[in-house]
Write a protein that binds this DNA or RNA. Structure first.
Length: 787
DNA sequence: ATTCGAAGCTTATAGACAGCATGTC
DNA sequence: CTATAAGCTTCGAAT
C-alpha cells in the first residue's frame, strides 16, 4: 500500500511521512490499515521490534485526532516516554501537539488537556484515572505499547487494569495494542474486542544462530566460520568478526559484574579498530561520563568508553545510560555489553546481537533459571539497523554440541510464551481493589468482581473462584486496615464466597441486597498517593507508634521496609554489621522489630536498616563516591533510592496529616533532607535557586547560614565560595539581593577576613563559620571506616 | 628467592513505576 | 537442591 492511499489523516501528515523517506507501507502496517486502524477500529498488532509498530500507532492516533479526538500513548518506561515524545513532536508541523506525563517529567493536568496527543507511563495513566483527570473522557484513541508486559508480575496488572478502566470510562474508545510476537496474541485481541495483525515480517532480515567451537550456525542452515583466537572468549571472537566488516554489536549478559568485565575485555577488541578522530570523540565522551558522577563505576565506564566499548546496566545514572546509548547509535561505540536493561529500553539496534548468558540467577527457582523465550527474542530483535545494515544477526553461545542443540530447540525454533495475566496475585489486587473502590468504579463486592470480569485475567482464568477468593482476602485486609468500610446490606460477604454466581440476574440480585463498599478518607488518600496499601499501613502504624519525635534514620528505615521500596540486599557478613547498628540505634526505629529468631523477617528488617542508613548518609552530606563504594552500588542505584525515598516520604507526610500525627514536620524535614542531601542546618540555604548540597555547605562554612545572609554578605566572600562569577550573581539574585552584580568584585578569603559587607550588613553572626573545612574532611574520613 | 600462572575456592547474582512542585555542581 | 563467571588465594613450577 502506498502512503498516498491513506485517508483520514491530518493534512500534511502524508507529506511528513514521505519526508521521512517512506513511500510504501510495510506489510503489517498495510494490514493494520485494512483492519481499520485509521477508522477507529480496535487492533492488536503483534509484530517484531523495529518493524514499524510506531507507524501503526501513529496512523491510528493521527486519524483519531483528525476526527476531532484526543490520543494517549502508554509506554512502560520513562525513557521511552521521552523518546516517543521527541518523535511525535515533529507532528507539530501539521498542528498536532504532544505532551508527556510521567512521574518525574511533569506537565500539569490542565496543560495536558490542551494537547492532542499525550505520552505517559502506565502507572501515570493509572494515577490520572485515580485522581479523576477530566480530559481522560475526551480520549478517543489509546495506544498501549509493549502490551505483552501485562505478563509482568509487578507492573503487568497496572496496565491491565488501566486499559480496562479506560475502556469502561470511554465506551467508544479505540484501543491499539502493540505487542512483541507472543504465543497468544489472539487471546489479547479477543479480550480487547480487537482485530489482530500477527506477523513475523521484518524490514531487515534477521538471522538467528548458535556459535559453538569455531562455527556460527544459522537457522537457515547456513554457517560462517568465526574462529577463536588464542585465549579470547567466544563473544570477543564474534564481536571482532563483525567489527572487521564495520558492524557494531550488543552482548547480553546476566549480571552487572559480567557486563563490566565483558566490556573491559571487549575494549581490547574495539580499541585497535578506532580512528584518531573517533579516539578524540571518545575521550570527550569519557570526560562527560566522569563529569556526571565521581564514582568507581563511572571511572570504569569511562575507561572502557575510551577504547570504544561500554557496559550498560541499571547502576548507571540515567545521564550515563543516554550518553552510552546515543554514542552507540552514532556508531562511535562499537560494542556494548548489557544486562536486560537494554533489551526493553530505548531503541539501540546493532548489526550483531550476542546473547551470551541464557540463564539468570533467580532465588525463587533456587538457582539459575533459563530466560523466557520472549525475553531472548526481545534481545535478538535488537539486531539489524534499518538503513545501515544489510541484515541483522542474533547469536547464542554454546559450549558443547549438546548445548548448541538445546539452544536451537529452546530459543531459535521455539515460539514465545503466552502472555498470562498476573492480576490475581494478592499484592496487585490489594492496590487495584482499593483504587477501583476509591475512584468509584465499583461500590460493592460484586461490582468489583464485575469490573474484574473485564480484565484479561478473567478471560484467561481456568481456576474458578480464585479471583473471588483473593478478592475477599484483599477486601478484608483493606477493611482491617481502615482503608475501606462496609455499610448497609448484610454483614460479611464471606457467606457466599464459595458459591460462584452464574448469571447476570443472580449478580444483580446479589448486588441489590449487598452492602456498599466505600473507601475511607485514609483509603482515598492512599489511592491518590499511588501507594501500595501495605506501605501505607506500615507508615501509619510506624508514625502512630512513635512516642517521641522520629529521627531521620527512623523514618528512612520505615519507608525502606515498605513494599514500595526495593531494598538493598544484605551481603554476607553484613547481617553482623547491621545487627550492631541495630542495637546501637534500636530506639530510633519505628514500629515493632521482628524477633531475631524469625530469621527471614529479621533479615528484611536489617536490609531496610541498611537502606535507611544509606539515606541517612546521603542526608548527612556523604559524597556520592563514598556511598557507592560503601554500599557497593552504582550512581544510578543511589539516585533511584533517593528518588523513591523522596516520593515515599512525601506520601508519608500526607498520611501523617491525614491521621493527625504530631510528627508531620519531622517527616517533612526528613524528606527535604533526602531530597537535597543535606543536614538540617542547610535546609534553608538549599531552597535558594542554584544552591545544592555542595554550595550550601561551603556557604555555611563561610558563615552564610540562611538566605537572608546572602542578601547582606560580603560579595567577595560569596564569590570566593561559589567560584564562578555568573553562578554567584544568579544565586544572589535568587536570594533576592537588590544588587547582585559581581562586577569588579575580587574573591575574598572568608577565613581571615570579615564576612559582613563592610558597607553595612545587618545581623549576620561573624562567629558562625566555625565548622572548618578541615574538621569536615576529618569527619568524612573517619566515617569511611566506621562500617 | 622470586615471579608467574594454573588450579582451586569463594562469592555474589536484572530491572525501576509512582505524589507534588520546580530546578544541581 | 539445580549455575557460572569473576576474583581471590594457594600452590607449584620455572627462572
Amino acid at each position: 500500500m502506498n502512503v498516498e492511499e491513506l485517508s483520514g489523516l491530518p493534512p500534511g501528515a502524508i507529506q511528513h511521512v514521505r519526508q521521512e523517506g517512506i513511500e510504501e507501507l510495510y506489510p503489517p502496517q498495510a494490514e493494520a490499515v485494512e483492519a481499520g486502524a485509521t477508522d477507529g477500529e480496535n487492533l492488536v498488532a503483534a509484530v517484531p521490534t523495529a518493524s514499524g509498530k510506531t507507524m501503526i500507532a501513529a496512523l491510528a492516533m493521527l486519524s483519531a485526532i483528525e476526527r476531532g479526538g484526543k490520543a494517549l500513548y502508554i509506554v512502560p518506561l520513562r525513557a521511552l516516554a521521552s523518546e516517543k515524545k521527541a518523535e511525535f513532536d515533529a507532528y507539530e508541523d501539521f498542528g498536532v501537539t504532544t505532551g508527556v506525563a510521567t512521574g518525574n517529567y511533569e506537565s500539569t493536568s490542565e496543560w495536558l488537556a490542551t494537547k492532542d496527543l499525550i505520552v505517559a507511563t502506565s502507572e501515570k495513566v493509572d494515577s490520572l484515572v485515580r485522581n479523576g483527570a477530566d480530559w481522560l473522557s475526551d480520549l478517543t484513541c489509546v495506544v498501549s505499547d509493549e502490551v505483552h508486559l501485562i505478563d509482568d508480575r509487578n507492573r503487568g496488572p497496572t496496565l491491565e487494569v488501566t486499559l480496562a478502566k479506560l475502556r469502561q470510562l470511554n465506551p467508544g474508545l479505540q484501543v491499539v495494542a502493540l505487542s512483541a510476537t507472543v504465543g497468544n496474541a489472539d487471546e489479547i485481541a479477543d479480550w480487547l474486542d480487537a482485530a489482530l495483525v500477527d506477523s513475523d515480517w521484518r524490514p531487515i532480515d534477521l538471522r538467528t544462530g548458535v556459535h559453538y567451537g569455531n562455527a556460527l550456525n544459522f537457522d537457515d542452515g547456513s554457517s560462517r566460520e568465526v574462529p577463536i583466537e588464542g585465549s579470547e572468549k567466544q563473544e570477543a571472537a564474534l564481536v571482532r568478526d563483525i567489527l572487521e566488516e564495520g558492524g557494531s554489536s550488543l552482548v547480553f549478559v546476566n549480571s552487572r559484574r559480567n557486563a563490566e568485565a565483558a566490556a573491559r575485555r571487549l575494549g581490547g577488541v574495539s580499541s585497535p579498530e578506532l580512528t584518531d578522530e573517533e579516539r578524540t570523540e571518545l575521550t570527550d565522551l569519557a570526560a562527560e561520563i566522569r563529569d556526571d558522577s565521581d564514582t568507581e563505576t563511572s571511572q570504569d565506564l569511562a575507561d572502557c568508553v575510551e577504547r570504544g566499548a561500554a557496559f550498560h546496566h541499571a547502576g548507571l545514572s540515567s545521564t550515563q545510560r543516554s550518553l552510552v546509548e546515543d554514542a552507540f547509535r552514532d556508531r562511535l561505540l562499537k560494542v556494548i555489553s548489557a544486562t536486560p536493561t537494554l533489551a526493553a529500553g530505548v531503541n539501540t539496534p546493532a548489526r550483531r546481537v550476542v546473547v551470551r548468558d541464557w540463564r539468570r540467577f533467580d532465588p525463587s527457582a533456587g538457582g539459575m533459571a533459563p530466560l523466557d523465550v520472549l525475553e531472548v527474542h526481545q534481545m535478538m530483535g535488537r539486531a539489524g539497523r534499518p538503513g545501515l545494515d544489510p541484515y541483522g544477526e542474533a547469536v547464542l553461545l554454546a559450549k558443547s554440541h549438546d548445548e548448541s542443540e538445546e539452544l536451537f530447540d529452546r530459543y531459535v525454533w521455539a515460539e514465545p510464551e503466552d502472555v498470562r495475566s498476573k492480576l490475581a496475585a494478592e499484592p496487585a489486587l490489594r492496590t487495584h481493589a482499593l483504587a477501583t473502590i476509591a475512584s468509584g468504579f465499583a461500590r460493592t463486592r460484586s461490582g468489583l468482581l464485575e469490573f474484574l470480569e473485564a480484565t484479561l485475567y478473567a478471560s484467561q482464568s481456568t481456576e474458578a473462584g480464585r479471583l473471588e477468593s483473593v478478592t475477599d482476602d484483599v477486601l478484608s485486609y483493606l477493611e482491617r486496615n481502615d482503608f475501606i468500610e462496609r455499610s448497609g446490606g448484610r454483614s460479611g460477604a464471606d457467606d457466599d464466597a464459595d458459591g460462584a454466581f452464574t448469571s447476570a440476574a443472580d449478580l444483580a440480585e446479589q448486588a441489590s441486597r449487598e452492602e456498599e463498599l466505600e473507601a475511607t478518607s485514609l483509603g482515598h488518600t492512599v489511592s491518590r498517593l499511588y501507594l501500595d496499601p501495605m506501605s501505607a499501613a506500615e507508615i501509619v502504624h510506624g508514625l502512630e507508634g512513635a512516642k517521641e519525635r522520629p529521627t531521620a534514620l527512623g523514618l528512612y528505615q520505615l519507608v525502606s521496609r515498605t513494599p514500595d521500596m526495593y531494598e538493598l540486599y544484605l551481603r554476607s557478613g553484613e547481617d553482623e554489621t547491621f545487627g550492631e547498628l541495630y542495637y546501637e540505634r534500636e530506639r530510633e526505629l519505628l514500629g515493632d522489630a521482628p524477633s531475631e529468631f524469625e530469621e527471614n523477617r529479621f533479615e528484611d528488617w536489617l536490609a531496610a536498616l541498611k537502606t535507611g542508613k544509606l539515606l541517612e548518609d546521603w542526608a548527612e552530606e556523604t559524597d556520592e563516591e563514598t556511598i557507592t563504594e560503601r554500599y557497593k552500588i552504582g550512581p544510578g542505584d543511589l539516585r533511584g533510592k533517593v528518588d523513591t525515598a523522596e516520593w515515599l516520604l512525601g506520601a508519608a507526610e500526607s498520611l501523617a496529616r491525614e491521621v493527625d500525627s504530631e510528627w508531620t514536620v519531622a517527616v517533612r524535614e526528613a524528606r527535604a533532607r533526602v531530597e537535597h542531601g543535606v543536614g538540617e542546618e542547610l535546609l534553608e540555604l538549599v531552597s535558594v535557586g542554584g544552591v545544592g548540597r555542595k554550595r550550601a555547605r561551603r556557604l555555611y562554612e563561610a558563615g552564610i547560614e540562611e538566605p537572608a545572609d546572602l542578601r547582606t554578605a560580603d560579595k567577595g566572600v560569596v564569590l570566593a565560595v561559589l567560584k564562578g562569577k555568573k553562578t554567584a550573581e544568579t544565586i544572589l539574585e535568587n536570594a533576592g539581593r537588590e544588587d547582585p552584580t559581581m562586577d569588579g568584585v575580587e574573591p575574598a578569603d572568608p577565613g581571615n577576613g570579615t564576612i559582613l559587607d563592610s558597607s553595612g550588613g545587618r545581623d549576620t553572626p561573624t562567629e558562625s563559620g566555625e565548622t572548618s573545612t578541615d574538621e569536615r574532611a576529618d569527619e568524612s574520613q573517619s566515617s569511611l571506616g566506621d562500617f
